[in-house]
Amino acid sequence: MEKIIKMKILRALILTLSFIIPISSFAAGNSDQKIPKHEWSFTGLTGTFDKSAIQRGYKVYREVCSGCHSMNLLYYRDLIDIGFSEDQIKAIASDYTVIDGPNDEGEMFERSAKPADRFVSPYANDQEARISNNGSYPPDLSVIVKARKNGADYLYNLLLGYDEPPQGFELSEGMYYNKWYEGHQIAMAQPLDDEYVDYDDGTENTLPQLAEDVVTFLAWSAEPELEVRKNMGIKVILFFLITGLLFYLMKVRLWKDVS
């Protein structure tokens, strides 16, 4: 009897697979070129952020990306998570100017930013951002890693993906060719190249290194809770495994006498 059941389950399984396999293989053949995977420190079950890489990545963001891209979900105080001291953060924040007010005289005034301020945006508003960038809006980068398919891998390859357009490719005015951008036409000029940013810690500043560091920084900014989350996850799963085992043993013991 049991054999028949197994046969039947097998048949149901084969039936199911025969439906799924042709569809998924079709889907695979239809999709665009696969984005190459990059080795990150923060992926996997126990992955953690490399703090020095985030700090270097922040330097890349500050000196290059922040010219056009805002990160308005972040506060300067958040930098404490990536290893800056409070004094360092105060110094970083004070480089920026924010408009505050009104004061007692009813006037708006400018002051230097404090750790409790959000990252200062490069443009006053969306319209200014567009007119300064040939009509294209540079997206906010706070959660960009979560807002794109293949997150970190995509952004890394995008930064390395600039190239001459292939023969016969019609590039619109003011656009650039990028292998990994949807439609291959991107409004952003190649933002990074070898030696664009000087590192203080002596790390080589090649393009792949700059790209890796800035994407690590963006991955942290999108998921600052990542390390706490994974750490807690292992404990919670262990709890359920052990409790589950105990209840399973209890069940076997209890049901032994049921007839």
């Binding site: 079950l45 807690m232 996850g233 799963i237 709890f239 359920f240 495994l241 209840f247």
Partner: peptide
């Protein structure tokens, strides 16, 4: 017991 099995599955998604 089933709640524990389910707990493992949903935790894998929520945390990882």
């Amino acid at each position: 017991f089933m709640v524990c099995v389910f707990g493992v599955v949903i935790s894998a998604i929520i945390f990882f």
